[in-house]
């Protein structure tokens, strides 16, 4: 049994947000949902200004508050460490979101299809329907609808549904097929690494051994599976710049 983890290397990150985009496309998340989010921070005063970037996926905590509080077990942690949401079981109470210290949970406030950039694009356009057989988005990823892992529950995010919670799945549908998560895969500068930390010989295990790592909000005792390298934990003095359109 593997134990999956991710490393975020802040000495490499360009803050380019390709990971966010890859995540949105791979997982077909709708508007303003950022399972992966990259902060762009500024601190200090001109000319002694410093900038930093901070990618923030779900931390897949080993001691996950979200899992503890879920009243239905829709939010659960697999033996391989991946924390998932069963979109068939979730009742939309949003307790996991409140319990999570990292703000990584996203609720389907409306029917995903209605939220799919439909202000700018009319997906019902017959000329497109012809090509896509009515899929919304047209690049809808069938792997998301499948049931994965021993638990065989609908966890890959394909269950995007009104009134249900979702978040980063470590791209379970890719990991199950032996692929790297979409964000890791696209990162231009290898600022993201993913792999099995139970096996000491995997590249990621070696990397974690060789480098000094830290966790986000260590003090909350959530024991994340996401390790950070370089940089430093963000402080409340940080000013966030260049925020995306994040409210629906």
């Amino acid at each position: 049994m593997a134990k999956y983890a991710m490393v975020v290397d802040l000495e490499r990150c360009q803050g380019c947000r390709a990971c966010m985009e890859a995540c949105k496309i791979e997982n077909n998340t709708s508007e303003a949902m950022f399972w992966m989010y990259v902060f762009r921070f500024e601190e200090g005063v001109y000319p002694d200004t410093r900038m930093s970037f901070l990618p923030r996926p779900c931390q897949h905590c080993d001691n996950a508050p979200c899992v503890k509080v879920c009243p239905t077990g829709a939010r659960f942690k697999r033996d391989d460490g991946i924390v998932l949401t069963d979109s068939d079981r979730c009742i939309g109470c949003r307790y996991c979101e409140l319990a999570c210290p990292y703000g990584v949970n996203y609720f389907n406030w409306q029917k995903p299809n209605d939220a799919y950039y439909s202000d700018a694009i009319d997906w019902s356009d017959p000329d497109i329907q012809e090509v896509t057989l009515g899929a919304i988005p047209p690049y809808k990823n069938p792997a998301l609808d499948e049931r994965w892992g021993s638990e065989q529950r609908r966890t890959a995010g394909g269950g995007h549904a009104k009134g249900v919670m979702e978040k980063c799945t470590f791209c379970v549908q890719r990991v199950e097929q032996g692929l790297q998560p979409a964000c890791v895969e696209t990162c231009p500068v290898t600022a993201l690494r993913f792999g099995d930390v139970e096996d000491p010989d995997t590249p990621i295990s070696r990397f974690i051994r060789e480098r000094e790592t830290w966790h986000l909000l260590e003090e909350t005792g959530t024991e994340p599976s996401v390790f950070y390298v370089g940089g430093k934990p963000p402080s409340q003095q940080y000013r966030e710049v260049e925020r995306p359109k994040a409210r629906v």
């Binding site: 380019c16 966010m20 496309i25 009319d122 997906w123 690049y139 895969e185 696209t186 500068v189």
Partner: peptide
């Protein structure tokens, strides 16, 4: 989905946000 082509030395299997996003432009009615 578009993904970086590992065989291409320019980007070694990676893509920037624009490279990723062009898929929605392709289908833009």
């Amino acid at each position: 989905k578009f993904e970086g082509n590992p065989a291409n030395p320019r980007n070694n299997g990676t893509l920037c946000p624009k490279g990723q996003a062009q898929i929605i432009a392709l289908y833009d009615p």
